[in-house]
Amino acid sequence: MNTLLIIVLAILCLFVVISLVRGIVAFMKTTKIDLETGEGETATDMQLMQNKMMFARIKYQALAVVVVAVMLAIAQ
């Protein structure tokens, strides 16, 4: 059971890193577009992608915390 939880935790950590990187890339593209056009008033596709990735990151982090809590509960 512990091995399975560790594997799930590793996968969730990987998802956190992937969503964080994708969110940062979307942020950088949004900043570049805003600097080039001089407009920053409307939500672009990149800004929506950034919000989506940051929400995904929070979701995966919460799931990872739950897995760690389950591991600690099993260990006691």
Rank of each mutant, 00 (worst) to 15 (best):
50 Q>V: 02
42 T>I: 10
36 E>K: 11
43 A>S: 12
34 D>F: 02
32 K>G: 02
28 M>A: 15
48 L>G: 11
52 K>N: 08
33 I>Y: 04
49 M>A: 15
46 M>I: 03
50 Q>I: 01
33 I>V: 04
46 M>Q: 11
35 L>T: 08
53 M>R: 02
41 E>V: 12
49 M>N: 14
33 I>P: 00
40 G>T: 06
54 M>E: 00
33 I>S: 01
56 A>T: 07
49 M>T: 15
40 G>L: 04
48 L>M: 13
43 A>I: 09
56 A>P: 01
50 Q>K: 07
56 A>H: 04
27 F>P: 00
57 R>M: 08
45 D>S: 15
31 T>P: 01
31 T>W: 05
40 G>H: 12
57 R>Y: 02
44 T>P: 00
34 D>E: 08
36 E>T: 05
41 E>K: 14
39 E>G: 05
30 T>W: 03
40 G>S: 13
48 L>D: 12
42 T>N: 11
43 A>Q: 11
57 R>V: 00
52 K>T: 11
35 L>R: 10
45 D>C: 10
57 R>L: 04
39 E>C: 02
35 L>Y: 08
51 N>T: 12
51 N>P: 00
31 T>Q: 09
28 M>F: 09
38 G>F: 03
27 F>H: 05
42 T>V: 15
33 I>W: 00
46 M>W: 09
51 N>D: 12
37 T>A: 08
47 Q>F: 06
52 K>I: 04
42 T>Y: 10
37 T>L: 09
53 M>F: 05
49 M>Y: 11
50 Q>P: 01
50 Q>F: 03
28 M>D: 10
37 T>S: 15
40 G>A: 13
49 M>K: 15
38 G>R: 05
36 E>L: 09
